[in-house]
Design a binder for these strands. Structure first.
Lengths: 253, 253
DNA sequence: CGCTCTTATTGACCTAAATCAAGACATTGC
DNA sequence: GCAATGTCTTGATTTAGGTCAATAAGAGCG
C-alpha cells in the first residue's frame, strides 16, 4: 500500500482535477478517471509574457492549447502586413482549432499579459478519444461554438455601427467574466484600446471617443482599463437595436 | 446468384458513388464500401426553389446537409431584423455545422436557385463513425476549414476597402468554380448584387459602381451576372495589396 | 525627482462609402 | 404589344468614422 502510494505521488500530479478552468476547456464533461488520463497527456510550455507569441501563422500545427491563466489574442495578417484580431482567449478557451484542416496554424497567438497554457498534442487527443469517446463530441462542440461566435463577429463588422460594436463587445466580455466567477459589473480589460479597435474594425480614436461618450451619457464609468457598467439596460439597448428599443427607453425615462 | 442480384437492385441505389460532388462533401476520402454505407443513410428532401428555405435560424438541428446541385446562401438575423449573409454554399459544401454545439441552427439557409441537398442525420453520422472512423476526421476538417474561411471574411470586413473586398470575392469564387471543373475565367454569378453587397458589408450601389469601374479599367467584363476576368494579375493586385504590388504593376505596364 | 516610453484622450478636418433619387434594362404575365 | 416588377446602374449629396496632430496621463527607470 505504502509502495503504491509512493508510486502515485511520484507520478505527474492530476493538475486538471483541481484546475478551475477545467470547467470550460476540452476536459469539461469527462469523468474523474478520464480527467486523470487527460491530465497525464498535458504539457506545460513556459509561460509567455505580454507580447510574446505561442505560435505564429504558418507554424505547423501539432497540438491544441488551452489557456490556463492570463489572456491571449489571435490575429491573421494580410499580404499587405496588416493585422486583424480574430478573437480573445480567456482561461479554458481552446487555441489552435483552425490548424486541424491544413495542418498549419492560420493565425498568430500572442499573450496580452503573462499567460500559461496547457498543451495537448493532436496525436494524444486521438488516443484519448479511444478511452474517452465523449472527448470527440466535446471538440466538435468547441469548434461549432467558436464558429457561431465568429458569425456574430461577421454580423458586427458587416452591419453594426461603432456604438453597437463596442456595446456588444463589452456585454460579451461581461458575461464571459461572469461565467468565470468574476464581476459582471466591473471589467478589468486585459487588452489595449488599440486591440479593441482592431478587433471591432475601428480605429483607436473612435474607440476612445466612444468610451468618453458612454461615460458622459452615464452608461459606463471609465478609468483607463477599468470599465464599470453603470446602466446595463441602456448598454443593451445600444447593442441590440440602435433605435427602436433605445427610443422606447428614452420615452420611458 | 440471381436472387442475390435482384436483392441488390431492389436496395436503394448507391447515389454517392456516382455523385460528382462527393469529391467535396463529407463522403470525400471514404473507401468504396464506406461510401455505399454512407449513401444508404442519405435522405433527399424535396428541392427548394429560389427564395425557399431549407432551415431557419432557431430551428432544431438534427442533420447536416450537403448541397447536391444549385446554390445556397446562409445568413444570420440581428434583433433589429437586419440580415448578414455569412456564406454561399456550392455543390459539396456542408450546411448546418453551426448547429452542433447548441442543437439549434444559428443561421438561415436559403436557396439562390433551384437547389437539392443530401441530408445526413446527426445520429446516423455518429453510427457511421463507428464503421468509418475517418469520417470523424473529415468532419473536423470541414469545420476547421469553414472556420478559416470565416476568419478571412473577418479580415475583409475589418480591414479591407470595398475594392479589395470585391476583388477577393471574385477571385475566391473563381477558384471555387475552377475546383468544381468550371471555367475560372468566366463566372456566372448565382447571387444578386444585393447579396454580394450584403456579404461584403457594403450597399448595392457601391458594388454596382465597382463592377462598372473594374469594367472601365479593363479588369473585368460585366454583362449582368456573367462576369469575365480579363486581367487576373491586376485583380489580384487590387485584392492583395491595394498599393504596393499594384504600383509595381503600374510601373511595369 | 525628472526623463523616456507607451497608452489614451481630444480636437480639427477629410474621405470612402452610405444615402437619396432617378432612370435603365430584363423578365414576366396579361 | 405593353404594363408591371424586380434587378441593376448612375449621379448628387451626406455622414460616420478615419486621418492627422497635439496633449495628457500613467508606468518604468536611473
Amino acid at each position: 500500500m505504502l509502495v503504491k502510494n509512493n508510486e502515485w505521488f511520484s507520478q505527474p500530479k492530476n493538475h486538471c482535477a483541481n484546475c478551475p478552468s477545467a470547467r470550460y476547456c476540452l476536459a469539461h464533461g469527462l469523468s474523474d478517471g478520464e480527467v486523470a488520463q487527460f491530465s497525464r497527456k498535458i504539457k506545460h510550455p513556459r509561460p509567455r509574457h505580454k507580447g510574446e507569441k505561442f505560435f505564429m501563422m504558418g507554424d505547423s500545427f501539432n497540438s491544441f492549447a488551452m489557456v490556463h491563466s492570463g489572456c491571449v489574442k489571435s490575429y491573421v495578417t494580410s499580404r499587405g502586413g496588416e493585422h486583424q484580431i480574430i478573437g480573445f482567449y480567456m482561461p479554458g478557451d481552446i487555441l489552435g482549432l483552425d490548424g486541424i484542416a491544413s495542418g498549419e496554424h492560420r493565425y498568430t497567438a500572442e499573450a496580452l499579459e503573462t499567460t500559461s497554457i496547457c498543451e495537448l498534442a493532436f496525436r494524444d487527443y486521438e488516443d484519448l478519444c479511444n478511452c474517452a469517446p465523449s472527448l470527440q463530441w466535446r471538440l466538435l462542440d468547441a469548434l461549432s461554438q467558436k464558429m457561431v461566435a465568429e458569425q456574430k463577429m461577421l454580423l458586427m463588422l458587416g452591419k453594426m455601427t461603432s456604438e453597437q460594436r463596442l456595446a456588444n463587445f463589452l456585454l460579451d466580455l461581461s458575461s464571459c467574466m461572469a461565467a468565470r466567477g468574476m464581476s459582471a459589473q466591473t471589467i478589468s480589460l486585459p487588452m489595449s484600446r488599440s486591440d479593441i479597435a482592431n478587433y471591432l474594425g475601428l480605429v483607436i480614436e473612435t474607440v476612445s471617443r466612444l468610451f468618453s461618450r458612454f461615460q458622459v451619457e452615464g452608461v459606463l464609468t471609465v478609468q483607463r482599463r477599468i470599465i464599470g457598467i453603470s446602466d446595463r439596460t441602456r448598454l443593451q439597448a445600444i447593442a441590440y437595436n440602435n433605435c427602436e428599443d433605445y427610443c422606447e427607453l428614452d420615452r420611458v425615462a
